[in-house]
Nucleic acid binder design. Sequence first.
RNA 1: GGCGCUAUCGUCUAGGGGUUAGGACGGAUGGUUCUCAGCCAUCAGACCGGGGUUCGAAUCCCCGUAGCGCUACCA
Length: 493
Amino acid sequence: MPNPPSGTATPGRVRVRFAPSPTGFLHVGGARTALFNWLFARRHGGTFVLRIEDTDQERSTEESVRTILEGLGWLGIDWDEGPFFQSRNVQAHRALALRLLEERKAYYCFCSAAELEARRAAAEKAGSAWKYDRLCVNLSPEEARRRLQGGEPAAVRFLVPEGTVAWDDLVHGPTSFDSAVLEDIVLLRSNGSPTYNLSCVSDDVAMRVTHVIRGDDHISNTPKQILLYRAAGLEPPRFAHLPLILGPDKKRLSKRHGAVSVTEYRDKGYLPEAMFNFLALLGWSPGEGREKMTRDEMIAAFRLEDINKKGSVFDEQKLEWLNSQYINDLAPERIVALVRPQLEAAGLLSADIEEGGARRAWFLKVITTLKARSKRLPDFVRDARPFLTDDFEYSEDAVKRYLGTDGNRMRALRAAFETVEPFTEEATEKALRALAESRGDKAADYIHPLRVALVGTAVSPGVFTILILIGKERALRRIDRLIAFLDSRATAT
RNA sequence: GGCGCUAUCGUCUAGGGGUUAGGACGGAUGGUUCUCAGCCAUCAGACCGGGGUUCGAAUCCCCGUAGCGCUACCA
């Protein structure tokens, strides 16, 4: 049972929302925002609402909605209400704008995009910062109505009142803006569609959102929204602005930094629990140097006050390390279930290693010996290959480093192994070492080529371990194959 | 340009008027050993700069500087 909410929460039930726009995949920044909202809601026994901000009809796609839901689902971030689609609420958004219009807190603006652009260019040329010049602010309602009826298109602008706008940001502390720096923002476009700030406020009110937790690229939208709440006579929610996730160049993480979509990380073989844990630690720390934590531990420890203000670089190496930690905790059965599709795709899946199959137990042993050295799921597929098929090559590196010019040692080893019974790790190791000693060689002179014979690579788990896993019969065949390879090489040169 | 936000090891961070400035990833070295990984041990590595306040500042204040974000009839 988590402790009662700490002082940050306003009284009453916590309601938060994640509001992605479906114009692409779920990127890690968005995922982290969702995650923090989720953690906060769970911590306070509140409600997590999912709202899809699809009002940009040009760029929003259903496919994108699907991948966002898929990404959240993969991470185990579930929502209590929604998904709601913002586009369904445009009537409410418009009604709010119309109400402000009625109360003279907003006004019609007939300036066309081209006129605006011209005036802006002129202002910039003159070296002054451009802000909408309020050309239409004093139009009488009668004149506005007349021009509207005459078919002239008009946008609705919010009349920004004078004064300062301040709020106590839950992560940044007291923050304020002079409203003089704000221009009269467009609420309704000339085609009648609502703009972001209007829709956002309208929906947050409708959904009774108590805490807006979002990226700090929204800090400059916050005063506009607070002003809108005030104009509507509504109490604004609390705001918490999260630091951005950065690429290695300290710029906001984007596609040119490589993978930014959570599904890409899934496909690269990261575990959702590792990704979740890693993302939670980006900008948040529970203190005490805790790194690897369960979801419940994170929920219990989560406090907005502990979120730091500095943007954090996404360090995939650390993600990989965390992932390896999580992989290590996984039961072999779970690992098999996770890599099964890739095994199948690689043509390595056979009935006898499936659940209930004759070699199931054996295969679980293979996975177990591979576990400690695996950082990502595909590592298993790569490393399990020589256990599942004879179809593998000798790596160039292994050949260069460990293969001599003739097969004599391997011939001797093969003969020695042939008589080892039972064929155990201890017995085979003893036989190999005895053989090496009797011939005045080092054990390594046999061990390394043997590894190449067995798995084709210069690196693997302990040779005797894999030797037993592969089994006497197959091992002898593979030694034969290496001898043949060595002999053909000898005659070729 | 305007406005805003930020500033502790390479990276993620803890700490916060008096500390050997702590941990994790990554790096280096050594150990285990048949390789690599793992594991264990050790090491290197930071308070952006300048002024204040103070007996004492990385910590509080101011001023710089730098980085980032926003500056749409996108969200």
